[in-house]
Design a protein around this nucleic acid. Sequence first.
DNA 1: GAATGTCCTGAATCCTCTA
DNA 2: GTAGAGGATTCAGGACATT
Lengths: 371, 371
Amino acid sequence: MESPGRSRPRTQSRSKELPIDSILEGDCIAEMARLPDKSVDMIFADPPYNLQLGGDLFRPEGGKVDACDDDWDKFDSLATYDDFTREWLAEARRILKDDGTIWVIGSYHNIYRVGALLQDAEFWILNDIVWRKANPMPNFRGTRFTNAHETLLWCAKDEKARYTFNYRAMKALNDDLQMRSDWVLPICSGSERVKDDAGDKAHPTQKPESLLYRILLACTKPGDVVLDPFFGTGTTGAVARRLGRKWIGIERERSYVKVARQRIDATLPLDESAMTVMADKRSQPRVAFGLLVESGMVPAGSLLMDSKRRWSASVNADGSIACEGNSGSIHKVGATLQGAPSCNGWTFWHVELEDKLQPIDALRQKHLAGL
Amino acid sequence: MESPGRSRPRTQSRSKELPIDSILEGDCIAEMARLPDKSVDMIFADPPYNLQLGGDLFRPEGGKVDACDDDWDKFDSLATYDDFTREWLAEARRILKDDGTIWVIGSYHNIYRVGALLQDAEFWILNDIVWRKANPMPNFRGTRFTNAHETLLWCAKDEKARYTFNYRAMKALNDDLQMRSDWVLPICSGSERVKDDAGDKAHPTQKPESLLYRILLACTKPGDVVLDPFFGTGTTGAVARRLGRKWIGIERERSYVKVARQRIDATLPLDESAMTVMADKRSQPRVAFGLLVESGMVPAGSLLMDSKRRWSASVNADGSIACEGNSGSIHKVGATLQGAPSCNGWTFWHVELEDKLQPIDALRQKHLAGL
DNA sequence: GAATGTCCTGAATCCTCTA
DNA sequence: GTAGAGGATTCAGGACATT
């Protein structure tokens, strides 16, 4: 039997234009080979898991479990699976922009091989994420722990890469707490599950849209291009479209390509205001403290205090401040007084307004808003 | 510098007797080489993670993170780490009984290499278990997802092995539900943390007893022998003794050996009735508002209103909401609008469903019920 | 004694722009 | 390349002191 993706990519010219918002029907390695270098912002990959299932599995009441026994999930050996993985990862690395990131999802059957090969290919793991399934399939035989999670790896191209991470958006999504590496999300079922013409599930391992939603919201910007080399029923494309991201899918099986096209065509993008996420302070334009002094918002000569009124500093005409013999920037003086290695002067220093202390950061926000 | 365990085991006679309930002071590979074939029922291994940390890391308030920067965690390259891992795994496989199992714990830094090498050595993965930390260290710089879990691999010697799994005990421990592959447990802190004479933590990476408790209860029988080749402060020995299992520890650092001996000597075996006391409380799943947005229950762009329709807020893609120039969490915006110090957004905000206003808390309940 | 507040700490691959 | 400066950044829980 011919296994998936194990034919050598034919030498053929690379397209210069990215086939944006479209599905490439064909072998994932051959089709990736046609895409230009450093051209996509993110790759999301849900490769075959190489499940190595034995015989049929029966439920306690007698029904047979509808296992994933498709040909595309079968490999002769671990070495064959490794070769396949190495090949598609090499293409993925070539296509990915230097500041782009790659996500790969898998189960214990394959994720340890994929993870080691990612590291071998010099990808830099940023996090491993556990998708904790809210409603997993029980272990019918009672022989192991219920396999209730899958693992995702999030990697940059190297240690120094400046990847996208929308920290504030993730924090907002998690009730104002940092988003953790364990995500509790339901499996894909009900009306979200794509059915074929006969009413059966169109794909054995369709991923929930909520999973892709979180990934794309966290690690891409609107307009970014996401490549999914194992497109299946097009979950990545549907969510990308909804969130105003561009997408490219690669899929070998014609039946999947068909349902994916229909599905994405039926997906409506959110309107732009709904796509808003909490802005990262790091992406806001810089304001020099001196500007607030010049504009009279914090006149030279006024007093700054820390929140506990332990120190008070006077503002100089040039935007530097002075306190207890120290003078310099709001940050440097704050750090020196506290004996700390660094200090954010914007949140450390306050001004008295209507009997209440207000951080000077609030004045900066006013300034940015043009007030 | 000579790294741990990388010296070749000297050819020396193997003991015929197992050194039951004792600590072998020495290099883990050399000491394992002296143990007889197929002699232990379980191996629990907590090897170096090879963290590859850079410079110092400071907390927002100025404190310095006490990193694990010990020499025993430093390896020259991934290849060196792989060689080390291959060697101790080969000894582990030799020592393990044919129906015994091995557990290995790690983080994303090392677990993918360990997992792949376990498979290469023909171990058969039974489960990967996620230890979800109830109280992980935050990501202080806001650059990644909070690294809130570690991974354990549970393997038999081959596909056909008849390993021990105490299904009923696990189910009982989990409120009569099948024990899942994700375990929520607190990190080791407080009085459980072993201190040295100076009152500092004796070991940088001590594991919680609750973790070992669950593992030993699940996968060994009373009287079984558990080998821990990276014994540290002896958590495995202490829990084994408490649960009536036999143990062997290998540890190179004399200071760890000393505290481990004291600790285990002070541990009393539990009588059976007391053993269930350690069962952990189940954690109430917390639902973030963002989850309802991700899952499409409250799509981005929809409108929220207070019960008197005085204000209406629009939902952003990240689960934050916006109203009259304020944006933030459902709680924060509700509080700001009312001029209140705090606000329960779940009961304050409503959605219109079938011409009736319904608090979003009702949707949360639906979500919790799996609808 | 109970309630409240302060301080400390945990396996961490933890910044970015300009000169 | 490197050096320096700006300024962004934390959650839960236990110990211990204070009210």
